[in-house]
Design a protein around this nucleic acid. Structure first.
Length: 848
RNA sequence: GCCGAGGUGGCGGAAUCGGUAGACGCGCUAGCUUCAGGAGCUAGUGUCCGCAAGGGCGUAUGGGUUCAAAUCCCUUCCUCGGUACCA
């Protein structure tokens, strides 16, 4: 034992961390043998990154806890596959290209190179051999191949659809449209809508299957968001007809979808989407100018604006009527922006008495309101409605509905549809909010869609043997965002694969969500030539055991991936129909200003600076310690020093157990009242209780509390440093447990300390990351006494240390005899005594 | 607007099942120590009253349920994510 401060070297991450990283790489510690059948496979997937160039601490926030999980699972004997890759196609590369005259590929690969270096510097245990980069032709040729299979299976089709269009820069993404007056971000031109023929994938075919989450361990909010996004509605399609008038003969079918066919008699007008195909024909000449102006105005609006329920309703009548099939009533036809062309049939029957939007609309334009549903309790004839009665109670009955009067609403729902159905004027129908997936992009930096347009043969798929259709290597944006492929004659002109005559290539490329909808399959065999996936490996390794990534992907990437997997299964490419068994969504680290980190905002925290200052382990631990992983929040580096200190304490504890602290007179002596035996028992107890808690925290992804518990253990052990029990068997066991628990989170320092312990014991080196997770000694972890809070009427008045396992009667006697309890009762007799939470607390209830 | 998540000390957060509010860490205060470092150790630190013992108040807001509410229900406000071409 030393009485003066021991001089041990400090932990120097700048030498220790790179040394171990090199050693791990040299040993191939994280290379996964995908064919090893001796251990259970554990496919741990974290969302791959877009190599944006805005590399920031947020990327680490996602990946370090996931890496800790990989290591934790390896320590449990799992064959862990933990791959990494890059989502390398996309808009930012083109923006950089246009702005800085750099080729998107050069920009992208440069960013990837930097990111690889950064990911290595954090000591993550990725299997780099399986890396996938989606802008490599080796990858995107299989996007094309899959597209062709979907085309054959009828899952891909082409139709027209509007895009936001700038006359100078072509199609614009949402983020490229700026301001309330919707102008192009680059040239400031007014953005318009333009209809383009584009490619779609038929995700709606799988809508019902996508609503099914059985067997998936996914967060409930994500399941709810996907369910709402798919938006299944059951109802009926009802056929109205147009009435003849002085400018058109009538007789056109106007199909509406309604979830409330029981309210058909209350339909007092009809509303078409401004884009509805019959608008033009039905518009009365006298209404023409106003209607055309309204249609044009609607086209300039976003869907979010159109669907805002708190907005003043707008609309114009066409000057034509429709006939209600249930009673022959003539009702006026309007157009309004709150009806969307893409949902249902693009036309609704308006029942103001029983729909909030229709009610507001009728109120504004003085249209009639007819009540047809009445809550049973309301009894006799109702007064004037102050708002729409939209509730749906089984006891509601119909009124003002001819022969259906008095029928309960749910019954009337069926009866009215059945009745119309027999006349061919209605059928039961299901509608979904989700639309087919538009995969066409009018951009260069993406996977070329492998079809050719031939004047003789029409749309001709590129034969498999001719894949990949490569992006031309040189590209000239000419300073504009318009798709340069359209100007590239060498790319554009090609013989028709069928007739050999002159033909032109499709110039649209694929949505990058195509790339990310199957990349985890490709990780298993990134260089496989026989197809997109190696079936044998896919069958063994998928579905993915655990997927981690941001909740911002709740309804797009995570839904597209589920769709893709099902579509691939239906094409006979994979066996399973779900991609990810278990999902965890971590939060997002925002800039210090609370905004999303981006270079343009100047709020990016560079991880390299942090690593240079504190070392990777400190950064890793700090990111885990910051808060609950699913929350994220604004970046604030205050507090990282505490984590650095903790690592320093771990270092001191392990390497200098016998040192003492000159600044603390009690250092080196056991706490008052303890002897060696009790101290050793206390140490073992603390270590094993920590093991139990930390294990549970790893399992539940509670990284912040896990680090806190390791800090507590370190603080606890520090009190025994320099005492007679330091270096005892109990102490050594506690230190070993501590390092093993720390290893997944702070892999470098744990490895270094482990190596030094082995060396001190003259044992051969073995990596701590190849060790088994320690076994819990439940007996050691057990406690003999515990503190019992005593409350009177819910307010804690006293605390008492009691032996565990005391009977309730014994506890009660003990509690009621406490002076503070007696004082709090002030002579009153307790009404009852509640032993709450399995004896965790006693509450004395007293009145008066 | 709609869908989803969240709001707890000066700050990040803990309280996992309705049962001790504030673990752990930052910051701050005091003391110790001296390879004088932005080092280390120890103690204190929600707030108000009080010398203290002790007590009042306290988890965005207002209400409710309960022996007991940060936790469950309803109201309102605020922040974040998504809203179909950012990824």
């Amino acid at each position: 034992m030393t009485t003066e401060r021991t001089r041990i070297e400090r932990y120097d991450p700048s030498t220790v961390e790179p040394r171990w990283q090199a050693r791990w790489a040299e040993l191939g510690l994280y290379r996964t043998d995908l064919h090893d059948a001796t251990r259970p496979p554990y496919y741990l997937l974290t969302m791959y990154d877009y190599p944006s160039g805005d590399l920031h601490v947020g990327h680490w926030y996602v990946k370090t806890p996931t890496d800790a999980l990989a290591r934790y699972h390896r320590m449990h004997g799992d064959n862990v596959f933990f791959p990494v890759g890059f989502d390398a196609f996309g808009l930012p590369a083109e923006n950089a290209a246009i702005k800085n005259r750099i080729h998107p590929a050069e920009w992208t690969y440069r960013n990837i190179e930097n990111m690889r270096r950064q990911l290595r510097s954090m000591g993550a245990s990725f299997d780099w051999d399986s890396e996938v980069v989606t802008c490599d032709a080796d990858y995107y040729r299989w996007n094309q191949w899959l597209f062709l299979r979907f085309l054959e299976a009828g899952l891909a089709y082409r139709t027209t659809s509007p895009v936001d269009w700038c006359p100078n820069d072509g199609t614009l993404a949402r983020e490229q449209v700026e301001g309330v007056d919707r102008r192009c971000w680059r040239c400031g031109a007014k953005v318009e809508k333009r209809d383009l023929a584009q490619w779609f994938l038929r995700i709606t075919k799988y809508a019902d299957e996508l609503l099914e989450f059985a067997g998936l361990d996914w967060p409930e909010p994500i399941r709810i968001m996907q369910t709402n996004w798919i938006g299944r509605s059951e109802g009926a399609e009802v056929v109205f007809t147009t009435a003849p008038d002085d400018h058109q003969p009538g007789g056109d079918e106007l199909r509406v979808f309604t979830t409330r066919p029981d309210t058909l008699f209350g339909a007092t007008f009809m509303v078409l989407a401004p884009e509805h195909p019959l608008v033009d024909r039905l518009t009365h000449p006298e209404r023409r100018a106003e209607v055309d102006a309204y249609v044009a105005r609607s086209r300039a609006e976003t869907e979010i604006e159109r669907l805002a329920t708190d907005r003043e309703k707008t609309g114009v009548p066409l000057g034509a009527d429709a006939v209600n099939p249930v009673n022959g009533a003539r009702i006026p036809i309007w157009i309004a922006d709150y009806v969307l062309a893409g949902y249902g049939t693009g036309a609704i029957m308006a029942v103001p008495a029983h729909d909030a939007r229709d009610f507001a609309f009728a109120g504004k334009f003085g249209l009639p309101i007819v009540e047809v549903i009445r809550p049973e309790a309301a009894g006799g004839p109702g007064g004037e409605l102050r708002g729409a009665y939209v509730s749906k109670a089984a006891t509601d009955v119909l009124v003002n509905s001819a022969r259906f009067d008095g029928l309960p609403a749910p019954e009337a729902f069926r009866a009215i549809v059945e009745s119309l159905k027999s006349e061919g004027k209605a059928e039961f129908a299901v509608t979904y909010r989700i639309r087919d997936w538009l995969v066409s992009r009018q951009r260069y930096w993406g996977t070329p869609i492998p079809v050719v347009y031939c004047p003789t043969d029409g749309i001709v798929p590129v034969p498999d043997a001719d894949l990949p259709v490569r992006l031309p290597e040189t590209v000239d944006y000419q300073g504009s965002g318009d798709n340069p492929l359209r100007r590239d004659a060498a790319f554009l002109n090609t013989p028709c694969p069928r007739c050999g005559g002159p033909a032109q290539r499709e110039t649209d490329t694929m949505d990058t969500f195509m790339d990310s909808s199957w990349y985890w399959f490709r990780y298993l065999s990134p260089h496989f030539e026989g197809g997109p996936v190696d079936r044998a490996l896919v069958d063994r390794w998928t579905p993915v055991s655990q997927y981690t990534g941001g909740a911002e992907h709740a309804v797009m990437h995570l839904l597209y991936s589920r769709f893709f997997t099902k579509a691939m299964a239906d094409c006979g490419l994979v066996s399973e129909r779900e991609p990810f068994l278990r999902l965890f969504n971590q939060g997002q680290v925002l800039g210090a200003d609370g905004e999303r980190m981006s270079k343009s905002r100047g709020n990016v925290q560079d991880p390299d600076e942090l690593v240079a200052q504190y070392g990777a382990d400190t950064v890793r631990l700090f990111l885990m310690f910051m808060g609950p992983w699913d929350q994220g929040g604004p970046w604030s580096p205050s507090g990282i020093g505490g984590v650095a200190r903790f690592i320093g304490r771990a270092w001191t504890l392990t390497l200098d157990p016998h040192g003492t602290e000159p600044g603390d007179p009690t250092s080196g002596s056991l706490p008052a009242g303890e002897v060696a035996a009790t101290a050793e028992r206390a140490i073992r107890g603390a270590a094993h209780r920590t093991l139990a808690a930390v294990t549970a925290d790893y399992e539940a992804f509670r990284f912040n509390t896990l680090v806190a518990k390791l800090m507590e253990l370190a603080n606890f052990l520090f009190r025994y440093r320099g005492t007679e029990v330091a270096g005892s068997a109990a102490w050594d066991e506690a230190i070993a447990l501590f390092l093993l628990m720390l290893a997944p989170a702070a892999p470098h320092v744990a490895e270094e300390l482990w190596a030094r312990l082995l060396a001190a014991r003259r044992e051969a080196w073995r990596s701590i990351h190849a060790e088994r997770w320690p076994a819990l000694d439940a007996a050691a972890a057990a406690v003999e006494t515990r503190e019992l809070p005593i409350s009177v009427n819910g307010k804690v008045r006293d605390r008492v240390e009691i032996a565990v396992g005391l009977a309730e009667a014994e506890v009660e006697a003990l509690v009621l005899a406490r002076p503070k309890v007696v004082a709090a009762l002030a002579g009153r007799t307790p009404d009852r005594v509640v032993h709450a939470g399995g004896g965790r607390l006693v509450n004395i209830v007293v009145r008066g």
